[in-house]
């Protein structure tokens, strides 16, 4: 199944924060993390990625700093803040509730489908 950005819309910030909760990272590496984690089914567009970075930074969920690359353009590293970790926990709680809610609809349907 090909996952479209519309299906994920609203969870991009959670996915990025999830990656940053493990270690500080930069755009390309975060996108690779999401790609691998999704089983190569979903890759963020750079425009979405950077727009989300800016929003998260503005909201105080992440901070950023320059890497010390000796040649070529420097990488911008992102780091999750305490507020960001609290926000991520809240997003995970929300997701669990949504999943329970949707399961109540879809699991029954799935059983119906398998019966037919």
């Amino acid at each position: 199944m090909n996952i479209t950005s519309d299906m994920i819309y609203g969870y991009t910030d959670g996915m990025i924060l999830c990656c940053l909760s493990e270690q500080d990272s930069y755009g390309y590496a975060i996108n690779n993390f999401i790609l691998e984690k999704s089983g190569f089914k979903y890759e963020l567009k750079e425009a979405t990625l950077y727009t989300t970075f800016r929003r998260l930074e503005k909201q105080g969920h992440v901070t950023s700093y320059w890497g010390n690359e000796s040649s070529g353009p420097r990488r911008r590293y992102y780091s999750i803040t305490q507020e960001g970790r609290a926000y991520l926990k809240q997003r995970i709680r929300e997701w669990k509730e949504i999943r329970q809610l949707m399961d109540a609809f879809f699991i029954d349907k799935k059983e119906e489908e398998t019966e037919t």
Partner: peptide
């Protein structure tokens, strides 16, 4: 300028990959 530099760094790494 910062956004341009960070974006270029990421895109060039993606291209090389």
């Amino acid at each position: 300028e910062e956004a341009k530099e960070a974006l270029c760094a990421d895109l060039l790494e993606k291209y090389r990959g």
